[in-house]
Design a protein around this nucleic acid. Structure first.
Lengths: 159, 159
DNA sequence: TAAATTTACAGAATGATATTCGATAACACA
DNA sequence: TGTGTTATCGAATATCATTCTGTAAATTTA
């Protein structure tokens, strides 16, 4: 039996994704007008995209500065454990202030994106959370001075 | 004259942000019920948060794999130009496949997050786009093998 | 302190919207 | 060709967003 892992998205699906990525709160009616379809047809497609986990959620984009989260940092780490062990990565992922945890190729093992109020709270985070995680042998912290672009928008193929 | 740059958010505002970050498509009525307020009052607050640029948008979170975007990479760059010059960063930001551009402290100048289909398309991107940007003197590409956590959700203070 | 102004909220009205459902047409496949 | 599946439409209804007015509270000003 062939396990069909491919998700086939047609032009209409891609257009929906494009519009909803741009503005998740676009009304179903507006979507339908833009796509030249009935609202009920569009709704069914959106539901299907959600069920197929093509769309995994909807979120409000919040200005970090408004929440006083003025420090962004990337932290590279090496670990001593065996290759393929996911414990350390999972421990890192549990930390709330950690936005991203990536296992990377190259000299280091993990790349972590962290957002805190300031350098003091980053220091506190490292003392209280990172240092408790076993097997981490080295850490290199890169402070972001200025973010010129930061978006989760994906490039959606034109056709 | 004191320029009031502070954005004062009370408990209700934070609760709105928490709920809308979790699910941007939550209905106004549901929000109002959760906050024990009238829908009209909540709507006014949301509008205000948008106007104050606390909420900067609403987006559908799309699974990159569904769009065949299976490669994630971080690229560190050095540049030869004078400190404070933003041209290079802006050039990088213009590239569609580039999700993030950060000016960083440390040995390198820029950290760039890129998402493409595969290593071939990353190669093509470097050939067609990155190489055209002047003043870049060195590049170090870090390929992500696995992403354990990736979210734009901010930590919203409890109270 | 008192008056004036601003702000936040509730409640009602209405206009728009989401959602459901049955019917139909297009399509895939054997 | 016949059968099952899928996508769509259009209408009906329930839900919701949005606007507006009045009011109370908070804040500012004199």
């Amino acid at each position: 039996m062939i396990f069909d892992n491919t998700i086939n998205l047609d032009q209409v699906d891609l257009a929906i994704l494009r519009l909803m990525q741009e503005n998740a709160k676009i009304s179903n009616v507006a979507l339908a007008q833009a796509l030249d379809l009935a609202p009920s047809a569009v709704l069914e497609r959106v539901k299907k995209l959600e069920k197929k986990q093509v769309i995994t959620g909807y979120t409000a984009i919040i200005n970090p500065v408004a929440l006083n989260l003025k420090l962004l940092a990337f932290i590279s780490m090496k670990a001593s454990h065996s290759i393929g062990c996911t414990d350390t990565a999972n421990d890192l992922a549990k930390i709330k202030d950690v936005q991203e945890v990536h296992v990377i190729a190259g000299e280091d093992c993990y790349l972590v994106k962290v957002r805190t109020a300031d350098s003091a709270s980053l220091m506190a985070l490292m003392r209280d959370a990172f240092s408790k995680i076993p097997n981490i042998t080295s850490i290199r912290t890169t402070i972001v001075l200025e973010t010129v672009k930061e978006q989760s928008h994906l490039v959606i193929p034109e056709q």
